[in-house]
Design a protein around this nucleic acid. Structure first.
Lengths: 208, 208
DNA sequence: AGTTACGGAATGAACATTCATTCATTGTCT
DNA sequence: AGACAATGAATGAATGTTCATTCCGTAACT
């Protein structure tokens, strides 16, 4: 028997309809905001009746938490799965950046939704806990990176993460709001600029 | 009677009450979000009746735009007034950073409000225009900085601004959400890290 | 037939906005 | 000056609308 996953992977009709509703809700939330979207349009987008939606979710708040957890989970999977965070390197950083951009590009609604501020008052403890599940491994990676001399240690790890994450979000937000268009080269350059901000520049032992 | 009309600051009773309502609205919006706050609590916070509020603002949307413009205006004043953007330098960058942190620290509600995403669907053309009034001078500064070899020119100006702005916002957002506490040293270090991201690290260039 | 899922009109709560009225200030008349 | 009228700012209960949620008739299964 494999190690028990926290959520049993059910693929019955019921859970498929749940997913269907969650994904529809994500689309509508991303477009109109949380308070801005009534429940009926969500049901319509999902192709179900309002009553049906309420069969699957107790309330709008429950639905919001489900959408949040689903998006956060997918982000975490995409970022961290099969990744050896314990041995930071420049290529690990590039890898993380590539995964982040892939997420922002392929699941723009989820990316946008996660960055919305107004869901914070809705989140239940479980959802808040999931927030940590992503941050803690990244924090560990930064600590190790600083200890090994890869990253500069002038900033405390949480600060370095906030700075980097903010920069990344800022770039995509600017694109979404139309202040900017991003091609692949732009993203590579932004990546390198971010690296400059957090890397250790007096490399021990190497000299150019 | 020759009344020397003070052109800029209108300081009659009416405009003072407008300001009073705008500031109260900013406080409540910053705490509960835009859709999350009914109009009556805003009136209560301002110490006026609901009807009075509607004497000064046609609608909630009008009020939101007024709050936005007021906050944006104050940010712009604080950032750009008496600043020679046409001659970028490291000390100009430090100066800008200091002004930004002062704004985030002294007017946290305004800073937070401006970063909320959900007002974007409310903003009228005039408010959107004001957005540009801040971005364009900054963009010009970056262009000059790149031409003079102070800043690296691998990123296009808009991208550099988005990256820097995002990093700054990310740091303060992390603090507001409790992921972080920031003392003055932290902010200085964050500033230096941001500088590394956008500065030109080759030898000083000359004009082309 | 019995059970479960579905849908969308119906319900009531919360909201933005209005409006009939009160209140305060200023001007006018004696 | 004092009494009175006129103006318009201020108010919050009343209004119509929008929303989250419920409920019940119908359809689809077993």
């Amino acid at each position: 028997m494999a190690t028990a996953a926290p959520v049993t992977p059910v693929d019955n009709k019921e859970s498929r309809k749940r997913k269907q509703i969650i994904q529809a809700a994500l689309r509508v939330f991303a477009e109109h905001g949380l308070h801005g979207t009534p429940v009926p349009p969500i049901a319509a987008e999902a192709g179900v009746g309002v009553g049906t939606l309420y069969r699957y979710f107790d309330s709008k708040e429950t639905l919001i938490n489900a959408v949040f957890r689903d998006s956060k989970h997918r982000l975490k999977e995409r970022l961290l799965s099969d990744l050896d965070l314990l041995h930071p390197s420049r290529s690990l950083f590039d890898n993380l950046w590539a995964r982040l951009t892939a997420f922002a590009r392929e699941e723009p609604d989820a990316f946008h939704f996660l960055e919305m501020q107004d869901h914070h008052s809705y989140l239940d403890p479980e959802s808040r806990h999931q927030e940590q599940a992503l941050l803690i491994p990244l924090g560990m990676m930064v600590v190790i990176g600083q200890r090994t001399g890869l990253l500069n240690d002038i900033m405390k790890p949480d600060l370095a993460i906030a700075l980097f994450w903010g920069a990344f979000v800022g770039v995509f937000k600017a694109e979404r709001l139309g202040y900017l268009t991003l091609d692949d080269d732009d993203l590579t350059r932004a990546r390198d600029a971010c690296w400059l901000a957090i890397a250790n520049h007096n490399n021990k032992g190497t000299q150019s």
